[in-house]
């Protein structure tokens, strides 16, 4: 078995071999791999006895279940109204020029993917960004770059 097949097998052992386990299994794969490759979705389908199209159908519905390759760290900057009013544009601009990417793209060294997100639930402390699962409220452009630099150092 390939590493991804082993991972999926373990996740299915943990969450159960039925349709209700599909979300936790896909979330488990994304937590390790950052996205769902074709290979991963086919393996999940086989393990849970579903059609691959069904697995893709579910995965493609959810913003956090990416089916496109992503960088090792995923940055999501909130773009909804409260963060908009508190200066999310400046944050995105600073990150774009620092990583030399546009929203939706992955940096050439594959360390970061920059995305925008709908309301992250920190409207009183905007602008806010998530890096992977970690949350960073009340960021300034300078602080955002500093945080990203720290992640870059930790990422091999």
């Amino acid at each position: 078995m390939t590493t991804i097949e082993v991972l999926i097998h373990d996740l299915v052992e943990k969450h159960g071999k039925n349709r209700n386990a599909l979300m936790p299994v896909l979330q488990g794969v994304v937590a390790c791999e950052k996205f769902l490759s074709e290979e991963a979705m086919i393996a999940v389908a086989r393990e849970l006895d579903l059609s691959a199209a069904d697995v893709y159908g579910t995965a493609s519905f959810y913003t956090f279940l990416d089916t496109k390759p992503r960088g090792k760290n995923i940055i999501r900057v909130c773009k909804t109204i409260s963060c908009h009013m508190q200066g999310k544009d400046a944050i995105i601009k600073a990150i774009e020029s620092h990583l030399m990417v546009k929203v939706g793209e992955t940096s050439p060294d594959k360390k970061f993917t920059l995305l925008s997100a709908n309301c992250l639930g920190w409207c009183h402390k905007g602008p806010v960004m998530l890096i992977n699962d970690e949350v960073f409220p009340s960021v300034t452009p300078e602080k955002a770059i500093e945080i990203i630099e720290n992640f870059a150092k930790k990422t091999i």
Partner: peptide, 18 residues
């Protein structure tokens, strides 16, 4: 996994059912 509409109760059930 990041879907506003899942706050709608029946959509939430669908999501829990994979």
């Amino acid at each position: 996994s990041g879907a506003y509409v899942c706050g709608e109760e029946s959509a939430l059930f669908e999501s829990m059912e994979g």
